[in-house]
Simulated assay, not measured.
Amino acid sequence: MANLLGSRPRLAIVGASVRAAAQSASRAGLDVVAADLFADADLREVGPATQIEDYPSGFCSWLEGVEADAWMYTGGLERWPALIDRMARLKPLWGVCGAPLRSARDLQILHAALAEAGIGFPETRPSSASLPLDGSWLCKADRVWELDRPNAAAAGLERGAVYQRRLTEQQGRPASVVFVLGDTWARTVGVTEQLIGPRHGAAPFQYAGSVGPLEVGRAVERQLKRLRETLRHDFELRGVVGVDLWLSDDEFWVLEVNPRYTASVEVLELSGATPVLGLHSLAFANEAPANALPASQPARAPAKKQILYARRALYVPDSVQLGAASPGMGENAAWLADLPAGGQRFEPGDPILTVIARGGLAESSAFARFVAETESRLYGATPTPE
């Protein structure tokens, strides 16, 4: 489709893994040039792609050398706000930088602002002093771990962690909401459930995928509207913003704010949402959305994605046929994405590829069979590297 700006800008996209964002940009009618850690085959199908070895500092020289009208970043890069600020001086940034980025990523600032707005947020402390070592609190820095022993507290001190009271399954489930925020407007794209941790083949507290969209009740809708206006007005965030939640039937708690394209955007788009990066581009063009999303959308076809992490050391030879790297045309389809190049080695815990489905094939049993078939091809036909 033609993008909502009526022209075809060239967008540079950077991050740890940008295939999903690049395909989203293509769906929104944008030309793409990309750089990430993998330069997977299906990313290269969208546009020129570069594998960055000096991560993340290598993005700066790469951006300086490419032709692009604007650039954006995806997951992981928000942890280097000074780098983002330097890159924003090279080319126009469709994204958040400077003080808004730092404030949104500071859990203590976020906690205070959301509490004042009447939005749920787990109790957060700057120090582990006097906290019990029983796993009822989490250490949050560049990763998340339980505060369950003295070594965990020592690691928190070393990494500059903050400490957040742990929410339980009786209180809700992990979820995410995607907003698009402009100067004078805001849209809620949708809510998804997050797949987190070992039950989905990931490390504890690690993201493994998303499924959605989730329907939420009116009480949650009202709270989400208050949240997005707080982020737009008080934090001055613009463009695509993802917020991790702990969601129950009638309320939620905010876990963290990711002021950039998030992995769940792809799931929402595959379930029928308006191309999100088209709206994202408008947030930086000072234009109101031409095709505004309705306040509440009807139920759409489900979609699901799951990252497969290596269970052991793995070598993927050229001879292994992993399957299609693009979606089928029907409402019921399943495919693989982030396909590795043949001859690639993976260490335990490395991301290998992503399984994606929509419609009936996104339902639990059908999706699980597709995951099992994919893992059988990976582990059944490939030897462990010596």
Score class of each variant (00 low, 15 high):
Asp183Leu: 15
Gly76Pro: 06
Leu181Ala: 03
Leu214Gln: 08
Gly47Arg: 00
Glu67Ser: 15
Lys225His: 15
Lys91Asp: 11
Ala34Cys: 05
Leu133Thr: 05
Cys139Phe: 05
Ala20Ser: 11
Ala310Cys: 02
Glu363Gly: 01
Ala283Pro: 07
Ala341Asn: 11
Gln171Glu: 15
Pro48Ile: 08
Ile352Cys: 09
Arg173Gln: 08
Asp142Pro: 00
Leu133Met: 12
Val265Ser: 09
Trp62Ala: 10
Leu77Gln: 00
Leu361Ser: 08
Trp145Met: 13
Pro9Phe: 08
Ala202Pro: 03
Glu64Ile: 10
Tyr207Asn: 03
Arg27His: 12
Leu247Glu: 01
Gly75Ile: 03
Gly160Pro: 00
Tyr309Leu: 13
Glu251Val: 01
Gly6Ile: 07
Asp134Pro: 05
Arg89Phe: 05
Val220Lys: 01
Ser248Phe: 10
Ala12Cys: 10
Val316Thr: 11
Pro298Tyr: 13
Leu339Trp: 10
Ala22Asp: 07
Glu53Val: 12
Gly6Trp: 09
Gly217Pro: 00
Tyr379Val: 01
Lys305Glu: 05
Ala141Tyr: 00
Val189Ala: 04
Lys225Val: 14
Val316Cys: 14
Leu314Val: 03
Arg218Pro: 05
Glu287Thr: 13
Leu133Tyr: 04
Gln297Asn: 12
Trp253Thr: 04
Phe367Arg: 04
Thr168Tyr: 07
Glu373Thr: 13
Leu378Gly: 11
Gly380Ile: 03
Gly120Asp: 02
Pro126Glu: 14
Thr382Trp: 06
Glu269Thr: 10
Arg228Asn: 09
Glu375Trp: 06
Arg226Cys: 10
Glu67Gln: 14
Ala68Glu: 01
Pro383Cys: 08
Gln171Val: 01
Leu245Cys: 10
Val240Gln: 04
Asp148Ile: 08
Glu347Thr: 13
Asp42Thr: 11
Pro126Ile: 12
Leu270Tyr: 10
Gln206Tyr: 02
Glu373Tyr: 09
Ala155Val: 08
